[in-house]
Amino acid sequence: MNPVALIDAGGANLGSVRYALERLGVTPRIVRDADGLRDARRVILPGVGAAPPAMALLRERGLVDAVRTLEVPLLGICLGMQLLFEASDEGDVECLGLLPGRVQKMQASDGIRVPHMGWNALEPMRTSTLLDGIATGAQAYFVHGYAAPVTEDCIAACTHGQRFAAAVQRGRIYGAQFHPERSAAVGAHLLSNFMAVSAK
């Protein structure tokens, strides 16, 4: 049995996510095709970069339908979370459609720089196992220029000029816009919480 399948979606943070899991005592299997997902008990979709090449790579590797039809907990990280939504303005690309909503470009304004880069506070929206033990106002590390809207799936928001979804959950589908692998104790907490969620 494969405890955690870590999908290689071409993002440069694959190694960092693997190391973060290893620090928690979890050895993930790096997966590059649908076969690799078959016996996975949990799946993580990390991602850094742009939505169109990431979706193209998932499609090329036969992973789009495999991820859409998973029955186990799935965690999207950063771009990986954005891919869970219906579509992204980045390259006007269709995404996985596991969560309703469209990812949009963040707007720069006076004092608001894009990309949103750095540590920012999490604003809890509702309780979720994913955020157990993470205090209100705890900070996480973000690096992104596009963001998902605050919908009913949003479990924590964040504000940078606009308010956007920092973490999401809909059933067994989870996502974090920030980088848990680079968010010190807060990030380790989130990853170990994900290791404890059940598939129901």
Binding site: S16, A20, Y141, H179, R182, S183, A184
Partner: peptide
Amino acid sequence: VERVARVLDIP
């Protein structure tokens, strides 16, 4: 770089 990446949990 890899030695640092394994242990460090900040960017």
